[in-house]
Design a protein around this nucleic acid. Sequence first.
DNA 1: CTTAGGTGACGTATCGTTAATTCACCGTAG
DNA 2: CTACGGTGAATTAACGATACGTCACCTAAG
Lengths: 332, 332
Amino acid sequence: MTTQRDIARTAGVSVAVVSAVINGTAHTRMSEATRARVIQAMESLDYQPNQAARSLRLNRTGMIALILHKLDNPVYADLLRGVYGAAAERGDTVLLGDAEMMRSGSQFVTRLLSQGTVDGILIRDDSLFDDKVLAELRSHPKPILSLDYAQDHPWVGIDDCRAGEIATRFLLNLRHRRIVFIGGATGHAFQQRYLGYQQEMRQAGLEPAPHLATGFGEQAGADGLRQALQLPAAPTAVVVNNIMGAVGVLAAARDLGISVPDQLSVVGIHDVGLMEHLRPAVTAVRMPMYELGQAGVHALYELMAGRPSTNGIITGPDPELIVRDSATTNPT
Amino acid sequence: MTTQRDIARTAGVSVAVVSAVINGTAHTRMSEATRARVIQAMESLDYQPNQAARSLRLNRTGMIALILHKLDNPVYADLLRGVYGAAAERGDTVLLGDAEMMRSGSQFVTRLLSQGTVDGILIRDDSLFDDKVLAELRSHPKPILSLDYAQDHPWVGIDDCRAGEIATRFLLNLRHRRIVFIGGATGHAFQQRYLGYQQEMRQAGLEPAPHLATGFGEQAGADGLRQALQLPAAPTAVVVNNIMGAVGVLAAARDLGISVPDQLSVVGIHDVGLMEHLRPAVTAVRMPMYELGQAGVHALYELMAGRPSTNGIITGPDPELIVRDSATTNPT
DNA sequence: CTTAGGTGACGTATCGTTAATTCACCGTAG
DNA sequence: CTACGGTGAATTAACGATACGTCACCTAAG
């Protein structure tokens, strides 16, 4: 393991100069010749700085944590890219964790709480966290920011209400009247989407259907549809809270002999590549997850710099309707 | 930021004792009373050890890197769980990276190459890596292990050949004769699966169809099926190299008016929860990805301990056929 | 000729933790 | 009474990188 000391010896200078060459320190100066000799020595000895020593000295690790609820939820793919990208721009690395690991006392939490592990923490879906863990994290000396509305700490988010509106309005414009909202259960994001649905329904002079809170994932969509069909008047269209639920809706419809979109129109919130490849391809509201990730990192950096962050919905692309084949004009 | 020094002052002992209490060092002894006082002080001051200092001193970070090709590929979900689980058992943390970030000179690679960042590296699908990056990683002082066959460094893998056999034999048993193998392009895993397919075909006295190397992902499945239908004799069944390709196969079949499974049987390699929710639900060969993750971590620990690792296919569950609805008896 | 100021570089304390070494004290065996 | 071993703890030297304080040397201005 080559250290600055080795470089210094080889180049015939002190470690101070080596460090200065590496960091471009203005304080310690050196001639061009010396700098060249140092660089030469670093290359020939294949020097790699020791991050641990650096972190200790600088009290800064160059690593931020990102904690998601279900890592393998495809809606996070873009978010990840946004976060990794924004962090990389600044030379930082991302430590990714799943909320499942975030049990109080777990190895991962202990690690996060330690000094000298990460410079800041980004979390998504904190409503799913153990309250105790959240309290622990908030007592962490490093800043923490939520990628969704949060009551007690800084946050940035996307316009979930608008997404609910867009999906609902689209179906209303297709002359649907009996539209239900399926899936989800807890969490601010879901509540906002349902709110958007309610607002649009009322504005169209319609009574919003009660929320069929069947949870998240494929099965939730299937369950939701089955419940919806029990309603006094069967719906002609559904808004699916979480896009993966749309897969379940399609499956249940198929199983029940309901043709999509002819007998039932489906619109999902969030978009993932998979939807294009389902049959029928699913119409969805694309959320700016990449931008959310970027904005989150930038806001976190503000906090890390000691500046207050502005909480709220990110400025940037609005949710956008991606029209595919799962919704059509209401025939009745 | 509370340090051991603060604890020591509060408890009226030296930092050596504090460290000994924390680490249970046998060498430095103390009375029960002293230990209790130290623990009390740690709690009241909310002490959290500084990982950076620890890493520097111990020359060990308690972090291993895991590098995958496409983080959001759902087949990795179980692998992730296996890796995180096995690492957590030992108190270690996982730094997750995507191969996309692994460009030579990229921030992430530089970081990995640094001393004091990770204690070892786990990679999957190194055939997709830049050769230069791979060379750099191999020159890394910390061990590196591949979760797939590798020529030049330690590896553990799963039985891809067997998976190809299982899928093919299943279709043969359903009296299919014109079976094609779709998807994939490069990589040892794919080659092995195709090999398994070929072996079974030959054993059944049939000529294996040439490989339709259309790549990975949903679109690859669709493309593969379209190509397969151009063959002199249209297939009655397909083995899909990568399970997400099955989604595309289903879509293309639908678009072309081919009924699955009545006119075309489909079996995918790898299994993900989604397959259960497609219609028809997709018959798939489940690979022991969780166990691969575990085995990989354990093998990496062997290397880290300076012991040689045994390369090869993990002992443990065989690939397992999950029968669903996308394959049926060949009517002809 | 003296000296101020610039240039180029060195020495060293420090970050927090760990582990080897040292040390003081006490009771007891010889 | 002395020597010795055990107990409970303090001192101190790293680990590698960084930044502050310092200093020697040279040049040019007064």
